[in-house]
């Protein structure tokens, strides 16, 4: 998930944002857990401040195949949220959401994309609700859009709408896994 950083960025603000997004991610994971009906464990979110142009390299390179689930926040908090998953991990997630044996999903058709959109909708809403409650402001998400493409192309949505080649973004990385312990962590 990406959140644009204001220009006046200092350590105090960074710490505050980190607390807010950690709470947001925790809520989002809770929403996801409710959706799949499986208790999930999540790692402590890693929060990095990185140049936007560097983000593709942190996600396997700009040409690597991925799934991007994109929402915009509207209301008193405005911004953009992009949940990015490696393509293979998105297939695993789809199996988990559709209660299928791991390895069943081989491609992402309309049904699978719809499930991933719902995942983005749910986690995005939980994330935004946590931020809104923390800040005492109102926010609501737009319907999610699912993109299956190269990481660089997916990120163009953020880059182009903000025009921020040289800007820095807050990048959150979190891994989560079913508590049964049989599945490998999925990070996004």
């Amino acid at each position: 998930m990406l959140t644009e950083i204001p220009v006046e960025f200092d350590e105090k603000l960074r710490t505050l944002l980190k607390i807010m997004v950690e709470e947001g991610v925790t809520y989002a994971a809770r929403g996801f857990s409710d959706m799949v009906g499986t208790p999930l464990s999540i790692s402590r979110p890693q929060v990095h401040l990185v140049p936007l142009a560097e983000v593709p390299n942190l996600l396997g390179g700009p040409e690597s195949e991925a799934v991007g689930i994109y929402l915009r926040a509207q209301g008193e908090i405005s911004g953009q949220i992009m949940l990015i998953l490696a393509y293979a991990k998105a297939l695993e997630l789809t199996d988990m959401m559709m209660s299928q044996t791991p390895g069943t999903t081989q491609t992402l058709g309309a049904m699978e994309r719809s499930a991933l959109a719902e995942l983005g909708n749910l986690t995005g809403t939980f994330f935004l609700n946590a931020l809104a409650a923390f800040a005492g402001l109102g926010a609501r998400p737009t319907p999610p859009a699912v993109m299956v493409d190269m990481v660089g192309a997916i990120l163009d949505v953020i880059v182009a709408t903000h025009g921020g080649v040289g800007k820095q973004v807050l990048m959150l990385q979190v891994a989560f896994w079913a508590r049964s312990g049989k599945s490998r962590p999925i990070s996004g």
């Binding site: 593709p56 700009p62 163009d156």
Partner: peptide, 13 residues
């Protein structure tokens, strides 16, 4: 002549 210039992952760009 050995160079290949590459713009990776063009979306709206």
């Amino acid at each position: 002549p050995a160079d290949v210039l590459v713009a990776y992952g063009l979306g709206s760009c």
